[in-house]
Simulated assay, not measured.
Amino acid sequence: MAVLRDWGLTLGKWAGRPIARVQRDSGDPDVERVRKAAAAADWPTVRDVLEARPESEDRTELVRAVGDTAGVERWISGIIEAEPDAPLPRLVGGFRYISWGWEARTRAMASQVSRAQFELFHSRLRTAEQWLYESAEREPLWTSPWLGLQMTGRGLQVGPAVARRRFEAAVRRDPYHLGAHQQHVQQVCDKWGGSHEEMHAFARESALRAPGGTLLGQLVATAHIEHWIDHDPGSRGAYMRSAATTASLREAADHSYRHPDFVRSGGWLEVVNTFAMAFSLASDHVGARECFEASEGRVTASPWHYLDDDPAAAYREQRRSARR
């Protein structure tokens, strides 16, 4: 199954209803601007776009967009050498080598990845780690390097203690950083050496400990989707439709996007898409319709790629079911 990391939206109309499509960004024009500059090796423009944004969530999508752009690896090392004291080139280089590393590994099952692929994967991640640590040393208050180090740490299998320290370093700088929490949910889930119990406990505690209206409610929905995936096909439906799962989703929704202090900014669209899928799988059609209406046909690839290689097709199918 293809894994589509970038997400975004476009909105068409058919018979008065939104036609959902997945694009490569969230609709922020600076994402496409910085991606084009990166593809053209235009470092001054990349730097200007990134420096114009505050650290943390406001810049995370932009940095990851540069990191996901093919060819950045051909010129970023030269910028790093030319600017030995600058943290930003190292941050960009780190995120590019993370993405480039996963390109070498591919998204195949570990048993299907060759030794040569793993060696290249690990080599690129180790380079990313070096640059990210150097970026963190030069800008001790930045969150982004620690987000990247969470990602490299999982690929390099640094172990739960180190992974936890990296997560804690990120949230010391930004306590409610969605990306850092998303990474740690993956770190503690069963498929990465954690457990379902640890994953659910972390997700619920993080979501409910945060002030009402933050994006962190998504963690609860993500945890249930991850647990659903791990069930045998015959028992998946029963798990998601259980009273405990439904109550957990509603509790998290009430504390997140349903809360009066919720603001549609940052990763809000991914939040309502995640709840839309979780409520759909739970057969909570009222909750699902609420999220589909909030998204207005705007689709984020995650988590719909778990249902279909075409996330928009999965979104449309579940939206039709919710309207019945």
Rank of each mutant, 00 (worst) to 15 (best):
D254T: 15
G67T: 11
T300S: 04
D48M: 06
H305I: 14
R165A: 11
E139F: 12
A40Y: 02
S77R: 06
L149D: 02
F167M: 05
R250E: 06
S26P: 00
R204F: 09
P211Q: 04
R124L: 13
V272F: 05
K13E: 15
L141K: 15
D254M: 14
E270V: 14
A223H: 04
P260L: 02
V188E: 06
V162A: 09
A210V: 09
A238P: 01
R47A: 15
T127M: 11
R35M: 05
A210R: 11
A104G: 07
V31M: 08
A161M: 06
W102S: 02
H224C: 06
V272H: 05
S144H: 11
P233R: 15
A201V: 12
L219W: 11
A37K: 04
S114T: 15
S114W: 08
G71L: 12
H177M: 08
M1E: 07
R298V: 04
W43I: 09
A244M: 04
T127P: 02
R241I: 01
A313E: 05
W268C: 00
W142Y: 15
E293Y: 07
Q150R: 04
I76E: 01
V286D: 14
T152V: 13
A282I: 14
G93C: 07
R236S: 06
W268E: 02
R324E: 08
R96V: 12
